[in-house]
Structures are given as structure tokens and as C-alpha cells.
Design a protein around this nucleic acid. Structure first.
Length: 650
DNA sequence: TAAAATGCATGT
DNA sequence: CATGCATTTTAC
């Protein structure tokens, strides 16, 4: 008897396993492993995917027959089936949820188009582009030869990273293997696709973007799954793309929060990619101008080697970075003064314009959550018990005074004793307010002003002509030939955020902007030169900062050194959940703390955090998923949101 | 949402 | 303690 193992599209956690169905005689020639089917499940017809075909079943009862073959197209390859299962396990979610992220909706028209043969492999790439990194050419040849090389690549300022990544893809293709590259957003994807177009054979590349029309999206997915396009470039959803004979996976700027999937079970693209490299035994490159603590851990644990230029090469490529004090002198020029430009920034910008080069001015987006910092040294204030961030308690205490309390474990911070400078007073951190482009424009009469941001529209590039380019972080256009200078303003708003990653994230934003300045150009950052993040920027030392950041996280017991799970729901549902939870040894439960209401959610919600050592992460995820299973089997009315290693921990 | 399992009142 | 009918549970 032919048996099809089917993952059914039902969201219930206790049904997160394949179910066996009999393959009826008349459908036998249409069923293939990985195809979409419809089956009768608990009476009703549901969608499903065949994960495997077999000759027998362990099921003791009668097998129901497959109701319908939706299509014979094998959309779920064995490699992706294993990956999605494994990602579900890691994030305490169900495979069905992960499949929803991995498989685009089916469309009839693209499927009817005949399959095309893949183009012949290109020659091995020219290693000259990677020659500035001592082990660069070695990495390129390792990828071409099909070795499972692993690297954390810290790109030089001004690096033409899209071309470098296309060369890595070319290396994989030249050795007959496929490649996958994930970038944060559409702007980066455009640049990467353009570089791939230049270097790779026509027809060998599929560009997967979340915002494409459904037919286009499914059509491009098929060119990959059918093996026509062996290189896939895309945004976070593309980490699951069915690349044939995968030889290389790459992620660009892994610190960008766009790599975190907002839909359950909330997997992070870097995490999925590292997992996938492991399962497929293929090469992996974690690439960025900055470096995350997670990437530092991959290096420290020996999983990856670092691919980094030596200091001499860096010095010739980098701009000159200068920091202003915390109480800098405002420019004397009245227009510059009204735009709150510091003297040094104003002079540097004016000189760049006079030299005929554009100037980049980075201003943070407004709307950061106010938090508490040490009044003396301005380090974020942390809880003495669990090292969570301190905030102002939402409701006043018994004496009517609103006191500081931990946002994780809710313990009040009656006293404060700064571990950095022994200060005892707290202050609210500044909330970032963006300067208007008009104000800046008035400070430089005669200069063209361009604005790039979410609300005004993101510019991908600007010309090399003198102009003031105002941009929010992540929206900085690339200037032809590089900017002459960059001003990084309102830095306290970035550094003072009550976020675990505030330092790392600030450095990433600064570096990404400063990297667009030409070699020998100037960068002025309006922040205290004594601050360690500022020092790391001045020295252009992302690796050093990441190492330090990782050491801090280890000391405080934060991810990625530990594993954290956040549980949020109503107080009663959480009490039930925790009651049923059988935690592995050594777990630490923090909370509850009240959660700010989200749009579309009513009633009071709370959050707990569960912290455990990294080696027990899989056991924690299993325990959490088991509780979800028991609750869904019992038809518990309320859903508890479970998120592993959430980006936002504050 | 169909079939199977279980619950439960009723009659002997 | 069978029997018939309603309700709950399972899920291939």
C-alpha cells in the first residue's frame, strides 16, 4: 500500500506532526513528495503538504484516502522540510506555522509555464575584489570547491559589498552549487540584484521580494525549486527558498531588525540561515559593516572564522571620525544655530560642499521610549536583581510617588547605585526629535537638500554633486563616489534607549552611514568621546565592540549567551500556562510585568521572561511547545504568545 | 465537520 | 445493565 505522510494546515499545537493517508490508485501517478494536497481531517477538507511517501504506516486505524492532489509540483524539498521542522522546534512553534513562511501561495499560471534548463556554470570569480582581506581569496576558492567554509565578514568602509556577495555566488555556481543571499530591505536587494545581473549568467538568479505580485512571487519561487535559477537573492522570507544543491548561504547586515520575522514563531533570518548551513553542510557568510554579539559568538565558539582587513588597509579606506563632547558648542552662524548644528559639524559640512562633495546628515526617527539612565554617566540603569532595564512604574506607589521599577521582574528600585560611576541619581533619557530638513537647508544657503526617510520616501542613490542629504538610519542613499562628509546627530537619543542592544544598534547605524563616506572624508558624531561606543566608532573597531558587547551579555546573563523566552497573555492564562510548564533544570522565571496594550488587543496583559543556559535551549522550547499542545488539546480559550530570544527585551 | 467515544436518562 | 439519544472528543 502507498502511504503519503501529510502535514495538515491546522494551527493546533497538539496536531503538529504528519498524518498518514492512503494514496488511491487513481491519484498514484500524481502524488510526489513535497506536493500540495487536500485531505479530509476530522471531517473537514483541509490543505496539506506531502512530506514523505512510504510503503506502510504505523497508524493502527484505517487510513483515509487523499482527497485531492492540488498540484504535482514538489514545492517542499526534503532539505526545506527538515529545515522547517527544525526551525519550529527551535522556536517552540509548529511546522505548519513555519511552512506558511516558507511556501508562497500557489498560483496556477506560473506553474503551467514549461521548466527551463539552468544556464551553464560561470567560470570561477576574479579574487581581486577580496584581496584586501588576507583570507578573502581563500574563502572564495573554498566556496568554489564546495567546502563548508564559515566566515563572519566585516566589510571595509566604502566596500562594494553587493559585488563581493555576487562574487561569492559566482564561486558557488562555478563549482556547480547553488547560493542564497538574504538582505534586510528592498533598497539593498536592488543593489545586490544589479551586481548579480552583471556577474552571473542570465537566468541563473531568482530575486524573491515579499512585495511582488503573487504570480511573480510564486513564479520566481518555482524557477528556484525547479533548479533553473540556482542563486536566490531576497529579504528575510527567502531564507527558506528551495535552492537546489545548496553550497552557500549569506546574510547581509544581520543586526538590522528587519531580519526578525514578525509572524509566529518569530524566527530570525540569521538564526535560520546558520541552522540551514549546519543541516546542509554548506558554506555560510555572516556579512556586515558592523558586527553583532551573535556574530561575535559564532567567531568565539569557533563556528566561523573572521574575514577582516588588517589595520593598515582599514586606515586607508576609512573616513576620519571625530566626536564632540556631550555639551558641545553650537555654531555661531545663526542659521546653523537654529538647526542646532555644532561648530565642528557645520565647518566639516561646509568644507565638503565647497570641495564639491555631498554631505550626509543622519537624524534618528522620533518616538523612542523614554527610559532611565544614570544622571552622572548616563549609562542605562539596570535592575540590581536581574539586570533588566529600569523604567518609571506605570502606576503610582502607595505614597502616590511613581518610583523606578524593573521592566523585566517588576521589582521596585528603591535606591540606585550606578555600577559604572557610583552615581545614585536617575534621570529620564532624552527622546529623539528629528531636525527638519528645512532647518538644515537654511544653514547651508544655496545647497540642494535631499531627504530620504520612511515618510518622505527612501532614495537608493544620489549623485556625487554637492548637496545636503538628510536621512534617517537605514534610509541613507549611496552617493556616487562617496560622501565628502557625514554628520551623525542626536546621538543621545540612540544611545540612551532602554534596549539591551542600544549600544550595538547605535554603532551599526553609525557605521552604515559612515561607510558611505569616501576614504579620507570626515565624519562628525555628536556624542561624548568618552563613551565606549563612540570610541569604538572613532577607532572603527566593530569587532572589538562586539566582543565587549558579548562579554557584557555573558556577565548579565542575556542572549545570545543564554536563551530567553517571553510569554505574554492575560494574567489568568499565564498562571495556567506556568502551572502546566515543566521547566528544565536551571531555568529562571522573571516577572510578571504589565505589558503596554497593543492595537487590536483588549484586556490586561502581562509578560514573563524565562531564562536558561544556552545548552538547555532546545529542552526549554520543547517544554513550552508541550504546554501549547496540552492547551490546544484542552481547547483553552486564550492563546499565550511564546517568543524565543525576542529582539526587544526592554 | 464526520465519525467515534463517552455520558446519561430511561426502562427492564 | 442494556438501550437509545445527546454531547463531547478525536483528528490518519
Amino acid at each position: 500500500m502507498r502511504v503519503a505522510r501529510v502535514v495538515v494546515d491546522v494551527p493546533l499545537a497538539h496536531l503538529d506532526r504528519p498524518f498518514d493517508y492512503a494514496v488511491p490508485e487513481e491519484l498514484a501517478d500524481q502524488v510526489v513528495a513535497g506536493c500540495r494536497v487536500r485531505v479530509r481531517f476530522a471531517g473537514k477538507l483541509v490543505d496539506g503538504v506531502v512530506v514523505e511517501l512510504a510503503g506502510s504506516s504505523d497508524h493502527t486505524g484505517r487510513l483515509a484516502p487523499l482527497a485531492k492532489i492540488v498540484s504535482s509540483e514538489p514545492v517542499l524539498t526534503p532539505e526545506v522540510a527538515e529545515l522547517t521542522r527544525s526551525v519550529a522546534d527551535r522556536y517552540a512553534g509548529s511546522m505548519t506555522d513555519v511552512l506558511r513562511l516558507a511556501l508562497p501561495p500557489r498560483r496556477g499560471a506560473p506553474e503551467k509555464r514549461p521548466r527551463q534548463d539552468p544556464p551553464p556554470p560561470p567560470p570561477a570569480p576574479d579574487p581581486a575584489g577580496f584581496a584586501r582581506y588576507p583570507t578573502g581569496p581563500l574563502l572564495l576558492s573554498a566556496v568554489a570547491e564546495g567546502h563548508a567554509a564559515r566566515a563572519v565578514w566585516t566589510a571595509l568602509p566604502g566596500e562594494d559589498w553587493p559585488t563581493r556577495l555576487a562574487e561569492l555566488c559566482q564561486a558557488a555556481l562555478s563549482g556547480g552549487r547553488g547560493a542564497l543571499v538574504v538582505v534586510p530591505d528592498g533598497k539593498d536587494l536592488d543593489r545586490l540584484a544589479a551586481a548579480a545581473e552583471r556577474l552571473l549568467p542570465a537566468g541563473s538568479v531568482a530575486v524573491l521580494r515579499a512585495d511582488s505580485a503573487p504570480d511573480t512571487r510564486y513564479g520566481r519561487f518555482l524557477t528556484a525549486s525547479r533548479g533553473t535559477a540556482q542563486v536566490v537573492l531576497g529579504t528575510r522570507g527567502a531564507v527558506f527558498a528551495p535552492v537546489r544543491d545548496l553550497g552557500l548561504v549569506v546574510i547581509w547586515d544581520d543586526g538590522d531588525d528587519l531580519h526578525a520575522e514578525p509572524r509566529a514563531p518569530y524566527p530570525h533570518a540569521r538564526d535560520v540561515l546558520v541552522h540551514r548551513a549546519h543541516l546542509a553542510s554548506c558554506a555560510a557568510v555572516i556579512a556586515a559593516t558592523a558586527r553583532t554579539a551573535e556574530a561575535a559568538l559564532l567567531v568565539e565558539s569557533g563556528w566561523a572564522h573572521e574575514l577582516i582587513a588588517d589595520r593598515g588597509t582599514l586606515r586607508t579606506a576609512a573616513p576620519r571620525v571625530e566626536a564632540l563632547g556631550s555639551d558641545f558648542e553650537l555654531a555661531r552662524d545663526p542659521a546653523a544655530r537654529s538647526a542646532r548644528l555644532p561648530t565642528l559639524g557645520f565647518d566639516v559640512a561646509r568644507r565638503s560642499l565647497q570641495a564639491g562633495r555631498p554631505v550626509l546628515i543622519q537624524v534618528p526617527r522620533s518616538g523612542y521610549v523614554p527610559s532611565l539612565v544614570c544622571d552622572r554617566c548616563r549609562a542605562p540603569a539596570r535592575c540590581a536583581h536581574c539586570a533588566g532595564p529600569l523604567g518609571i512604574a506605570p502606576s503610582p506607589g502607595p505614597n502616590g510617588v511613581r518610583i523606578a521599577a524593573c521592566r523585566w521582574c517588576a521589582r521596585p528600585a528603591a535606591t540606585f547605585d550606578c555600577p559604572h560611576c557610583s552615581g545614585t541619581k536617575l534621570r529620564a533619557a532624552v527622546i529623539g526629535a528629528s531636525r527638519t530638513a528645512e532647518e538644515l537647508g537654511r544653514a547651508f544657503p544655496g545647497a540642494a537638500v535631499r531627504v530620504s526617510g520612511r515618510s518622505s520616501g527612501v532614495l537608493a542613490t544620489v549623485s556625487g554633486d554637492p548637496a545636503i542629504v538628510v536621512a534617517t538610519p537605514g534610509a541613507e542613499p549611496v552617493a556616487e563616489g562617496g560622501y565628502g562628509a557625514a554628520l551623525l546627530l542626536d546621538s543621545w537619543a540612540l544611545l540612551g534607549r532602554a534596549d539591551l542592544r542600544a549600544g550595538e544598534e547605535t554603532m551599526r547605524r553609525w557605521l552604515n552611514a559612515a561607510a558611505l563616506v569616501q576614504a579620507g572624508g570626515r565624519v562628525v558624531v555628536s556624542a561624548d568621546a568618552a563613551h565606549p561606543v563612540v570610541q569604538a566608532l572613532v577607532r572603527w573597531d566593530p569587532a572589538g565592540l562586539a566582543t565587549r558587547e558579548l562579554a557584557d551579555r555573558r556577565e548579565l546573563g542575556f542572549p545570545p549567551v543564554t536563551r530567553m523566552a517571553s510569554l505574554s497573555a492575560s494574567p489568568s492564562a499565564l498562571a495556567e500556562f506556568l502551572d502546566a510548564l515543566r521547566l528544565p533544570g536551571g531555568a529562571d522565571v522573571l516577572g510578571p510585568v504589565p505589558e503596554p496594550p497593543r492595537p487590536g488587543q483588549e484586556g490586561e496583559r502581562e509578560r514573563y521572561l524565562v531564562r536558561i543556559r544556552r545548552s538547555e535551549g532546545a529542552a526549554l522550547a520543547r517544554a513550552l511547545h508541550d504546554v501549547q499542545g496540552v492547551r490546544s488539546a484542552r481547547k483553552a480559550p486564550e492563546h499565550v504568545r511564546v517568543q524565543l530570544d525576542p529582539l526587544e527585551l526592554a
